[in-house]
Computed example of a mutant assay.
Amino acid sequence: MTRILRFIQSSDPRGGGPIEGARRFAQTWNELGHTQDILTLEPHDAPILPDYPGDIFHLGQPYGRGPLARYRYSKKVVPWLRENASKYDAIIVSGIWRYQAVAARRALKNSNIPYFVFPHGMLDPWFNKDKPYKVPFKKLSWLLVEGPLLNSAKAVFFTSEEEMRQAKNIFKPYHVNGMVVNYGAPDLVGDKISQAQIFRKMVPELDGAPYLLYLSRIHPKKGCDLAIAAFASIASKRPDLWLVMAGPDKLGMIPKLRAQATALGIMDRVLFPGMLEGDAKMGAFREAEAFVLPSHQENFGIAVAEALAAGTPVLISDKVNIWREIEADGAGIVGPDTVSGTTAVFQSYAALSESERAEMRDRARKTFKSRFDVDNAARSLMAILQDRS
């Protein structure tokens, strides 16, 4: 049995891909006789992931508005790591630019415990362009924390060739032992008909109508406004088609998106059902005509892989780092993360015949099985961890 510790900022499933990937890998590893515990920077009374097959340790401070609270500083973490790291065969640090990087660097730099780092797209140059005022602080942090942490890791894991390519030399010195590892989502389980019924009951307005599905955080990075603008461009050509925008809205963006849809005359065909989980989520993926994600930056896109598992074609931007694989396999349509680029993607999809859409669904499913099945990815990553630990 191999014991892994995953050090991640939060285990809240609303956080998206990193924790979703961690929990899915843990499930597969558990079935193979291995364990993965989780260490977070959440407060001690934070909710525990239901049915997680390992221990979860919350050692963070209460949430607050101050700089240390936002950085998720906790004086408990470094002593805990120094005391408990030897209980594990390897440690995976998920994410950078928060206190988990500082704590991992301080606690592990003189230890014999092998550690690995998932940047999870946080070295993408888009972030420097989006918030240039943070760049000087990041350069200093790289010199003191992230650079030494990554440069001393047994390996730094990237989830696509595109992510690894973009990360090079964004910050210097850069002497990272990077490698691309398989990543993905679990195959769909459960009854397709009952899952579809559960989802449809949550959105009775659809009344059986076809729809395009956005399922991710409601966040400026995700291009939600682009999806609405592009949908407006095909609404008259497909009067039967709806747009479902599902996901948690921590930033309160939905009123603005509703106003945009109203101004474009499509609000009566755009739904915001909130975060979908379990059978409702599976039903949404299975029933959708296509999945849409015109993101401005996407390290991997767990939801893209989940859609492919359902045999649902994906309409994505070329800032989703697995876009080359999608385009090569014909499992969806790709375009720039602009209004015109997203509109062109939607219009290309709307122009497909029924038989062409059916063929794309078949290719989507094949792409999932050959590239993005999390069971295969978890086995592959465990072999790497065992080989390098």
Rank of each mutant, 00 (worst) to 15 (best):
D45K: 05
A209H: 13
I384M: 02
L149N: 00
K222I: 04
Y211I: 02
K139R: 15
N110R: 14
N299S: 12
V135I: 14
S111M: 11
S194D: 02
G16E: 05
N177I: 09
V117M: 01
P273F: 12
G265Y: 09
I302G: 01
S380Q: 13
F368D: 09
S94P: 01
I302K: 01
R65P: 03
V314I: 07
S216H: 12
K129S: 13
A377N: 08
G332W: 05
G223W: 01
Y174V: 02
A22E: 03
R217N: 02
R269A: 05
G121D: 08
A377W: 02
Q36Y: 01
L206G: 04
F346V: 13
K319C: 12
Y73D: 00
A26C: 05
L123P: 05
A229G: 02
E306M: 10
L5P: 00
I326P: 01
E163N: 09
N84C: 07
V117C: 01
Q166T: 08
A328H: 13
T312H: 13
V320S: 01
S94D: 12
S111C: 08
G223I: 02
D268S: 15
Y63N: 09
K192I: 03
K221H: 07
K319L: 04
G147W: 10
K221F: 00
F272W: 14
L251P: 00
D207V: 04
D51F: 07
S141K: 03
K134L: 15
A104T: 14
D240K: 09
G178P: 06
W126R: 07
T312W: 06
A263I: 04
D362R: 15
L188E: 12
H34K: 06
K222S: 00
D318M: 12
A350F: 07
T338N: 05
T343A: 10
I113N: 07
L308T: 11
I170R: 10
N112F: 02
G332Y: 03
D45E: 14
M360I: 04
F300V: 11
L271V: 13
G274M: 09
L215H: 13
I218G: 00
S317K: 10
M1N: 11
A196P: 00
Y115S: 10
L352C: 13
E31Q: 15
E325R: 14
K168Q: 13
A307P: 08
Q100N: 15
C224E: 09
K250M: 06
E20I: 03
I234P: 02
E327D: 14
K222N: 05
W97E: 09
R106W: 10
G66C: 10
A378P: 01
R371N: 13
